[in-house]
Simulated scan of single mutants.
Amino acid sequence: MKILHYVDENRLAWMAPWIQLLKELEKRGVQNSVLCREGGTLSQELAKSGIDVFTYTPPAQWLPVFTSGIGKIVDRAKPDLIHTRLSSAAYLGGYWGRKKNIPVISTFDKYPKAKYYENSDVLIGCSSAVTAHIKKLKLPRARLIATILNPVLSKYYTRDWSARQKCRQSLGVKPGECVVLGMGRLVGWKAWDDFLRAIALIPERGGYHFWLVGSGNEEKKLKNLSAKLGIQNRIRFFPFAADVRPWLWAADLFVQSSKEPEGFSLMLIEAMAAGAVPIATNIGGTLDIVKDGVNGLLFSPSDIRTLSAAILRANHEEARASMALNAQRSAADINVGRISEETVDIYNKTLQLKR
């Protein structure tokens, strides 16, 4: 079968596992081509991987009638199905799929509005929480709704013990001390202020190192808050890291304090693959990944007392080792082989619906 994948972007945070998924789909008999925007790294990396690429930048992103270039590419690719990612691609791809009588499958990575998906025939949520959101939209053309998690290249994140030791030593971490890492965009809904307030509840003499890696419009506010809480000497801020692996390898615990639901947190699953124990809010796609007390710990949004208690609990060596091992196994289970199999199954079911 021939699939035209459409993503109206020219770079993606999840580019590497997605390209690997496309290559895995090829092994299952899928002929892939990708439509993306011009410029950026996405088209270059796809071409390097031997995947056919079409590039097009819509002159009017939300006016599909003025995007005839997409229609011409669909005619050239002659796909059996169009598979879109992200809202604008679903909106434009859905329009041209309906116009050309080609079924459109749309993957939801977040919680968007219904209007972008009105022409999609099959809807895929990247987590159970996102799928529940899709069902509430009650889209009239949707004939099939399913959940398929985003894959992770777990081997890419397998802990490098030498790099771990080097990073920890360079930042003054002594043997036996615990590194608690937060990483991501420093924006309001990520609730890093709750992370800081939880740190303030943890005894100073516990051998902890608290790190927050990332950038965003809340950075100054968070630094001011750390001073107000009297923890400015306990929390260290680091800028955005292009390669997150050394930080994940160096960490013992990984905190995700989001107060709004994540669709499917790639950073969280990467941390688990790297051997860090996740401590995360019990909302959104996180519930597909973290099982409380088994491969990590959960807490309610803004419940800083439970968060601080979870950090203390996870720092016990036996419990931490068990949860870290289970976290790595959980991450390894969400692999491109499994996800490609589930994806091909959806493709086949969609083609049967067409008949």
Score class of each variant (00 low, 15 high):
M1V: 06
I3V: 14
H5T: 14
R11H: 03
P17F: 00
W18R: 11
W18C: 07
L25H: 06
E26S: 12
R28D: 00
Q31R: 15
N32Q: 14
V34P: 10
E38M: 07
G40E: 02
T41L: 04
L42D: 01
E45I: 03
L46H: 02
A47E: 15
I51E: 08
F54C: 10
T55P: 11
A60S: 10
A60G: 04
Q61D: 14
F66G: 01
I70Q: 03
P79I: 02
P79M: 02
D80W: 04
L86V: 09
Y91N: 10
Y91S: 07
Y91A: 12
Y95K: 12
R98P: 13
R98Q: 09
K99Q: 13
K100W: 01
N101S: 13
I102F: 05
S106V: 06
D109T: 15
K115N: 12
E118T: 10
E118Y: 06
S120V: 11
V122P: 03
I124E: 13
I124D: 11
C126N: 14
C126D: 13
S128C: 11
K138R: 09
L139A: 04
A142W: 08
I145K: 00
A146N: 15
N150H: 06
W161F: 13
W161L: 07
R168V: 13
S170E: 15
L171T: 03
K174E: 05
C178G: 03
V179H: 05
W189N: 12
D194T: 13
L196I: 09
R197D: 06
A198S: 14
L201R: 14
I202H: 09
R205K: 10
G207E: 05
G214F: 07
G214T: 02
G214M: 07
K221C: 12
A227W: 08
I231P: 15
F237P: 07
L248E: 00
L248V: 00
L248M: 01
A250C: 13
E260Y: 11
I269M: 00
A276H: 10
V277Q: 08
I279K: 10
T281P: 08
I283N: 07
G284K: 00
G284N: 05
V290C: 04
K291D: 14
K291W: 13
R313N: 11
R313P: 01
A319G: 12
R320I: 00
L325A: 15
Q328W: 05
R329Y: 13
A331F: 00
R338D: 03
S340R: 04
Q352G: 08
K354Y: 12
